[in-house]
Design a protein around this nucleic acid. Structure first.
Lengths: 123, 123
DNA sequence: CGGGATCCCAGTTGATACTG
DNA sequence: CAGTATCAACTGGGATCCCG
């Protein structure tokens, strides 16, 4: 988007960011990390607020990038499970670094403020 | 976006990621990193293809996040310079890690592609 | 249950023109 | 030079409906 029309993406870092960090992605990865492999429906409920289409699209992309795996059991009703792969875990390491950085900046910013804002409980 | 309507973003990492994923952002950061501080016009030319409005909007956002600084010299014609701040450099380190990961995966793929789908040990 | 196909709107981005 | 203003075009993503 925005870019492809102009010139090919030449920055690998940008490519990876775009591929993996699309909307909801961090929430999906976070959920799978915390809960372990989950079925589609459960994952959808856990992430909260995401549409089926979006979730499907994200899962496909992540699977293609080999960040998550997909296991399909042709039972009735069908059962599909998603979970992090080795790469998914490696990715988490980098994201954790990002997270640490974000938190530190946050702390720096709120330092000295009269009203101490409660640290976000999320992730 | 996509999310704010549902519930406030409480995850700092996600907020930061959102910032980075903004259009052109990585290219801007990349350029400033490679070339050092640059004037608006030069930066625009270097990034290539970006509109003034977009560049301005991104720079403002990045400045607000304290990732880049803006220096204005009220000369005639005016001279404005942008460059990475300490945070911008810290960010660079993490992005480099991401970049490294991407490259490694790439190498793995081109090598023998024995992609054994291991189950995640669910951290 | 998992997810493909459609419809459709709102927010974004790009192009263009203008200014201190 | 470094933006700002305006407007039109595009499309990402939600909402729905449906099927194997």
């Amino acid at each position: 988007m925005t870019r492809k029309s102009k010139q090919e993406i030449t920055c690998p870092m940008d490519a990876l960011l775009r591929l993996l960090m699309g909307p909801w992605t961090t929430y999906i990865l976070w959920t799978l990390r915390q809960r372990g492999p989950l079925r589609f429906g459960v994952l959808k409920r856990e992430v909260g607020g995401i549409s089926s289409r979006m979730l499907t699209e994200r899962l496909r992309t992540l699977e293609e990038a080999q960040v998550i795996f997909r296991e399909y059991y042709p039972s009735i009703p069908p059962e599909v499970t998603y979970g992090l792969t080795r790469r998914g875990l490696e990715l988490r390491e980098v994201l954790d670094a990002l997270d640490t950085l974000a938190r530190r900046w946050n702390a720096e910013d709120t330092d000295g403020e009269v009203i101490a804002r409660e640290l976000s409980p999320a992730i």
